[in-house]
């Protein structure tokens, strides 16, 4: 299961980074979302993976619990990353509506011809 999890995190990260390196705002936003999933899963997994051991205390029996701390961290991270995505979307939208262009690179057109970044 660890292999599945780690490879999923890796694939999400790779896909996120690839999309972030695109030149239009929307793929970059998608890439950020994918990267967010990857990072959140990564943080979550620092508590190690456990099945059927939620960190909800059981009054009646001694049962194992998974690590609650990364979960609390990731919970706020999810909510904050929503806020961040919303701000980025808003900036992208404002930029597109104002300039009628959703390219993210702000270099001059003359320079862009010779730049392959």
């Amino acid at each position: 299961m660890e292999i599945l999890f780690a490879s999923a995190v890796g694939i999400l990260t790779a896909a996120g980074i690839y999309l972030i390196l695109r030149k239009r705002t929307f793929p970059v936003i998608l890439g950020l979302s994918l990267l967010t999933y990857g990072v959140n899963l990564f943080l979550f997994a620092t508590g190690r993976l456990m099945v059927n051991a939620p960190p909800v205390l059981n009054k009646y029996a001694e049962v194992p619990y998974t690590d609650p701390l990364p979960q609390a961290l990731v919970l706020t991270a999810i909510v904050i990353s929503f806020g961040m995505t919303a701000v980025v979307v808003m900036i992208a939208l404002g930029a597109y509506l104002s300039a009628k262009d959703d390219q993210i690179d702000m270099i001059e057109n003359t320079e862009r011809a010779g730049d392959d970044a």
Binding site: E2, I3, F5, A6, S7, V9, G10, I11, L12, T13, A14, A15, G16, I17, Y18, L21, G38, L41, F42, A45, T46, R48, L49
Partner: peptide, 18 residues
């Protein structure tokens, strides 16, 4: 670039989880 970075992140978390 993306695949290298992704492999690094995946490997890192795998190493951590084990």
């Amino acid at each position: 670039i993306a695949i290298t970075a992704g492999a690094g992140v995946g490997g890192l978390i795998y190493a951590l989880m084990t």
